[in-house]
Amino acid sequence: MLLRRVLRSISIPLIVLLFVPIVHAQGITRQAFKDSVQNLPYFSIHKDNYFISGTPTNTSINSNTANAKYQISFKQMITRSALPFDTYLFVTYSQKAFWDVYKESYPFREINFNPTIGVGKAIFDKNDRLKGVGSVYFEHESNGRDSIFSRSWNRLSLEYTTEFGDRLRARGKVWLPFSYKEGNSDILDYRGLGELQLSYEVKPDKLYIEVLLRKGLTWDTKGAFRPRIYFNPFRRNIANQYLMMEWYVGQAESLMDYKPFTSMVRIGYVIKSNELSLLKGK
């Protein structure tokens, strides 16, 4: 029964992935990867760090429906030395906030906290070229509130990122949830058990298109579709800074209100993560 629910949850992302040409980029060698890891900073950006603001497309626009969203995310390498099975240990912390900046007192509607601890491993092909990066980690996500407003869940996650050709990157993620029944027992009907993210480099260091797909466990349309467009307006790529437009369509954008359907278009500033730039040999 659980296997059937897992397959149902990730069926759409897998179908999309089947239509991607299986042509991997020429990755760096195993030795070059080990040398590069030694030069990586211990502290770095994990997910995108951004501040964006916008309005809904499926309801009236006013100070109650328009808002801002921002995210702060970082990663700390515990060790750059290879652990057993050539893995490395890391912790991450991400904080996503929904801010009602158009209301008189500028209140925060909700803040979601997402700390993790895990191990990562580089995957090489038979020619000792870097093929992808996998991670296994424990993560907790909550809104930091109590009583009837408390929303939280824990999961053991498996993630794999690889390159297809020179411009397309795919990230697949599945999770095994636990300790989530209190306050949000049906959250998997909206979050599902996995997600797929595809990122296409239209113009290097200038223009990117990214799509995230997530399907809930029910047979209906519950889930999420989140396209993003990144554009660098600067003449040079200054510290990975971009303008970003995001359209979030679906459920579970936040933990507190994970059931209602959302359609929000937001635009703003982002410092784009480049933690997996080694996949391109950078």
Rank of each mutant, 00 (worst) to 15 (best):
M1L: 11
R4D: 15
R4V: 14
R5Y: 06
I10K: 02
I10D: 00
P21R: 12
P21A: 15
P21Y: 01
H24G: 10
G27T: 11
S36Y: 15
N39A: 12
P41Q: 14
I45S: 10
H46G: 05
I52P: 00
S53V: 09
T59M: 14
T59S: 09
S60G: 14
I61Y: 04
A66T: 12
A68K: 05
F74V: 04
F74G: 10
I78Y: 07
T79V: 08
S81M: 14
L83Y: 04
V91I: 02
T92N: 13
S94G: 11
S94K: 15
Q95R: 04
A97Y: 09
D100I: 03
Y106P: 14
Y106F: 15
P107Q: 07
F108N: 11
E110L: 05
I111D: 04
P115H: 08
V119W: 09
K121Q: 06
K126W: 00
G134E: 05
E139Y: 07
E141T: 08
F149Q: 12
S150N: 15
S150Q: 13
S152Y: 02
W153L: 08
E159C: 08
E159H: 10
Y160C: 02
T161K: 12
R167S: 10
A170L: 11
G172K: 01
V174R: 00
L176K: 03
P177G: 09
P177N: 07
Y180I: 04
K181F: 02
K181C: 00
G183K: 04
N184M: 15
S185W: 11
I187C: 02
D189L: 03
Y190N: 06
Y190G: 00
R191F: 10
G192D: 02
G194E: 03
K203E: 15
P204V: 09
K206M: 07
L207A: 09
E210W: 00
L212Y: 01
L212V: 03
G216M: 01
D220P: 08
T221F: 15
T221Q: 13
F225A: 06
P227F: 03
F234I: 06
M244T: 01
W247T: 10
Y248D: 05
V249Y: 13
V249W: 00
G250D: 01
G250I: 04
K259D: 05
P260A: 01
P260S: 08
T262S: 13
G268A: 01
Y269V: 05
S273G: 10
N274R: 10
N274M: 15
L276H: 15
L276N: 09
S277T: 09
L279F: 01
K282H: 12
